[in-house]
Design a binder for these strands. Structure first.
Lengths: 338, 338
DNA sequence: CTGAAAGCGCTAACAG
DNA sequence: CTGTTAGCGCTTTCAG
């Protein structure tokens, strides 16, 4: 029944080099005393036989797998590939392998993947989720780091300051002279969508003459956003600035405006959030609050490594500042009137 | 040294149910005779103890891991997430887990990942590559399926008919009345880029009055394409149609045209290739030869499953037809003059 | 129908 | 410095 592949094992090496398997293991892992001469001999044999240790056997003994899981809602959402890439790049360097888990924000799937990970001695996980609860994670008792969205106050979290970013985006629209600013927000159940909404709301409240805020639901979806924005602009043609809760919805806003013949940025300024590659590819290019996505993800991976090697997390919240990418979609001069 | 996690093992179940581990194994795997009553008792115990078998131990014995690797050049390239998602979705249903490998088309990295896979008893791989050579794969002796690009005539391949797709794209530009059609091609070393070029070339040759083809290098990169197209249009303003070798380069073409104030589609029609989500998000929306990406990838995954379960591949080449998405960037009526 | 026992390939005491 | 040995948790003969 077993496969007929015949790879060389530690025993083959031991026999060939006339030593015990323990010695081979010692030179492989640079661990324990080995006579320099035997060490050389063993090394030579390993090279000659092209021996590669079997990770599965090692995992079984060590109860670890040099594997981590990365859980994202959907790799097809353009924000996540960069995140995943950052994690994968960093970890392969450390000899770790990355298992991809698409959850669709479905708690069932999250649980399924957690089970799978546990059964495989996965060493830890990097998780993007707003459905996962702390007690579930406790059940699995595995090093975990949260990315993009927080999970619980004592799991290390790497995310951007959504509220401040949103404030800056809104302020930017004001700075370039917008008088009537609307917000296209993401889903209610996604915490960062709400934080961005709050940032918008705060600036609108505290700025003279901007008490009238105006929010539509874009659901983090381009088409939904296009539809909502079109309707909004029909009802309130005086709107001259839109802050979209992410870049995808900003593209939708662009389309909504275009369908009504409204010129961006002349008649309507639009700014997004995230800074995905896509945002600089459109016409006009999209202004956006850019997240240091790659950096966040490699640092999250680094933190996970520390956790796995037994260190306790130094601080649990790592908050990054998004930066304004001022591009064509908000490219106008501040009007001096007030 | 071992972790202190204390999960329940098959022994715990056996003890609790007053049977041997062999019996527990039998009921778990529905394999061999077990008295219905004992079976029930064991099942109950498994459920009560929330026992989940340890995949690593099983792998060690069976020399298989219920894991496959997916190798792509770069998950950040918008074409690949959909591919990866299709594979992952299909495989998780089958109880398989997916390891992500970003190779950057670097043979070193490809080899590294292949090593990693072998050491982990990975059961097979789905590979997008044009650098991987057959003899290297043979070395690893592992079920493999090629996606998007072929590797060797006897590894099952799932890809689109690039040449025919390119012919149709070019023909489409002719059909809508373009008189002077250029092509932005992908890298020389990527076979599908060359196939698309050939499709373009063929149509240009066989159509009356179109002997003068005109090709620039876009390198599958948006910025590079924008630059090349801009220069091209400055030198040859009579060009009124562009077939770009993929959607990303088509977006670049759009930008190149825009920077010169050239109107799309009125003065210049542009068509891309791939049909990534992005292509319908732009303004104007991009006409493109759309690939059945998700379908191809699930079927590739299915083929890999067959290979793994020991069946020999029925046919090695699975060629899909791309379909024309006629959208705004080529939206004009055929002119009747000639 | 069921149990005992021999591994899968590797690591880490524990004795030399 | 090196070898022997006992597992890691599971599957599968091989005898009852």
């Amino acid at each position: 029944m077993n496969k007929v592949i015949n790879v060389t094992t530690i025993r083959d090496v031991a026999k060939d080099a006339n030593v015990s398997v323990a010695t081979v293991s010692r030179v492989m892992n640079d661990n324990g005393y080995v006579n320099p001469e035997t060490r050389e001999k063993v090394k030579e044999t390993i090279a000659r036989l092209n021996y590669q240790p079997n990770s599965v056997a090692r995992s079984l003994y060590k109860k670890e797998s040099k594997t981590i899981g990365i859980m994202v809602p959907d790799i097809m959402n353009p924000y996540f590939p960069e995140l995943v890439r950052g994690v994968e790049d960093y970890l392969i360097e450390k000899g770790f392998t990355t298992i991809l888990c698409n959850t669709d924000e479905d708690p069932e799937k999250e649980r399924l993947y957690l089970d799978v990970m546990k059964q495989r001695y996965v060493d830890g996980a990097i998780i993007v989720s707003n459905t996962l609860k702390r007690d579930l994670i406790d059940e699995y008792d595995m090093p975990i780091v949260a990315l993009d969205r927080s999970i619980h106050e004592n799991v290390p979290t790497f995310m951007v300051d959504n509220t401040v970013g949103a404030e800056q985006a809104t302020q930017h629209l004001i700075d370039i002279g917008c008088k009537r600013i609307a917000h296209v927000r993401g889903p209610e159940h996604v915490e960062n969508a709400t934080a961005r909404y709050e940032g918008y709301y705060k600036i609108m409240q505290q700025t003279n003459g901007f008490q009238e805020h105006c929010v539509v639901q874009g659901d983090f979806d381009q088409k939904q956003s296009a539809k909502a924005v079109k309707q909004l602009l029909q009802e309130q043609p005086e709107i001259d600035g839109i802050f979209a809760g992410n870049d995808i919805m900003a593209l939708g806003a662009l389309k909504g405006a275009e369908s009504l013949g409204i010129k961006v940025p002349q008649e309507l300024a639009i700014i997004g959030f995230d800074g995905i590659d896509l945002s600089s590819m459109t016409i006009p290019e999209l202004s956006t609050m850019s997240q240091p996505i790659y950096e966040m993800s490699t640092q999250a991976a680094d933190a996970l490594m520390s956790l796995i090697s037994g260190q306790t997390a130094d601080e649990t919240e790592h908050i990054y500042q998004p930066t304004l990418e001022w591009r064509q979609s908000t490219d106008r001069i501040r009007k001096e009137d007030n």
